[in-house]
Amino acid sequence: MANILETKALTKRFGGIVANRGINLAIEQGKTTGLIGPNGSGKSTFINQISGMFPPTSGSILFEGEEISRKPACEIASMGIARTFQRIQLFGHLNVVENVLVSRCKFMRASALDIALGTARVRHEEKAQFDKAMEFLGIVGLDGDAWKLPSNLPYGKRRALEIARALALEPLLLLLDEPAAGMTKEEFVEILRIMEILKERKITMLLVEHTMEFIRKAVDRVYVLNFGEVIAQGSFEEIERNKAVISAYLGDENE
């Protein structure tokens, strides 16, 4: 099986703090890879580096064999890495379907001149992309809320919208940063259902999570981070029995 993304000795320093230290991680095509670890273990930093929000201090990130560690975020997204955020980041002044349409901009070919002249091409393109956006909303079950503003959606639906927006990029790799954080029981069930759909669609995912229950149900392979380093990797069952992992988690709970 081919790896779609590999990091080699990926390191990120913030001043004197090392947030990620020499991380070697591989994401297999078509699989869901989990990344777990206690709070502050460097999970979000890792995602932010892959998606181009922070440039790495050293090391490399290969996406389909290409080095992307120095590329700007928008280019990485354009190449096919989509993401969601730990704290939901939607566009507050755009309604639900418009939020998804933002991700469709990269598929738009009309030039500013076309738009200024109001050519038929623009109208067709807008219509086609609008239908596409509605389709993605349908996947996460939000097609009924298309005209609402994100602020009028309940928390769980906002999460779903963020996922739909990421899907609309038609990514080769989807990074989900704690999608189940802060959810109620029902919302949790709903997000698991969405995860199932994504897996059925064979979307490659990197799932960053805090809760073990969610990871257990969702992933094929797990990496465990602690203090910025990978301390274990393997299937969930292997991880569960790993002493280092247990102590890292228990240590976290004792604090």
Binding site: A73, C74, A77, L101, V102, S103, I115, E126
Partner: peptide
């Protein structure tokens, strides 16, 4: 148009806009 949508997206949250492949 999509250009306007890009403007609004960058205005609301330029980090999220970049993550949606928009060159802010």
């Amino acid at each position: 148009s999509y250009i306007g949508r890009q403007m609004f997206a960058v205005n609301d949250d330029d980090v999220a806009a970049e993550a949606c492949a928009i060159n802010s």
